[in-house]
Amino acid sequence: MFARVVLLVMRKDLTIEVRSREILYTTLFFAVSCVLVFAFAFVREGEPLGDAAAGILWIAIAFAGTLALGRAFERERHAETLRALMLAPAARPAIYVGKLLGILALLFATELIIVPLVALLFAAPFFSRPLLLAGLLVSGTIGFAAVGTLFAAMLVRARSRDVLLPVLLYPITIPVIIAGVRGTAALVQPVVDPAIIVMLISLLVAFDVVFLTLSLWTFEPLMTE
């Protein structure tokens, strides 16, 4: 039953998205513009500064992620469909997981484009260790989206939600972004030390576990009116 609800909610979100492709296109465009803006700040005389690529990548992901989160729930607010979802005889945590998986699918799709783009534009050897890179991206994105989905869902009913989402989300997820940036920066060093990256991935996984547990646990009382 739990898995069925999760799949149904996710399928609903993805179907809407596949039909309109609104979030994917706007998020992707926004992420690319972010990269462009940073290119002006961190490139001197045609050469990118040291570890800039790692930072640019994660900031682009975080900003684009915020945009996607906001949009995904704005859609639910429009026709009061979130209320309908909450009224459905389904476990609240299952609804949360379904929304989370939908957001994650979108973010991973964005990363599929953004990561090679940043690697190409900033001559960063991201793909020297594809498995470690994937580990960082997956664990980092899950941590970010876990908190993001919870807060975006809570904020649906709040006033000035567009402003409050980043206000709530960034301070709490910055540890995730820091670990992600550090890990990615270690990945582009001339000599890669896998031990550091594995340590950061395990830190990210620890964050994921804490954030997911807390989110699953607080989603129900938070979404009850």
């Binding site: 908190v147 919870l150 807060f151 809570m154 904020l155 009913r157 709040a158 006033r159 000035s160 402003v163 409050l164 206000v167 709530l168 301070p171 709490i172 804490v210 954030f211 807390l214 607080t218 009382p221 938070l222």
Partner: peptide
């Protein structure tokens, strides 16, 4: 951020900020 949400979150901001505090404690 907790205080900002309380002040500008409008109705229901007490729950919002409670979540913020729990994540802060974590």
């Amino acid at each position: 951020g907790y205080l900002l949400v309380r002040k500008y979150g409008g109705p229901g901001s007490d729950k919002l900020s409670a979540a913020m505090a729990i994540f802060g404690m974590a």
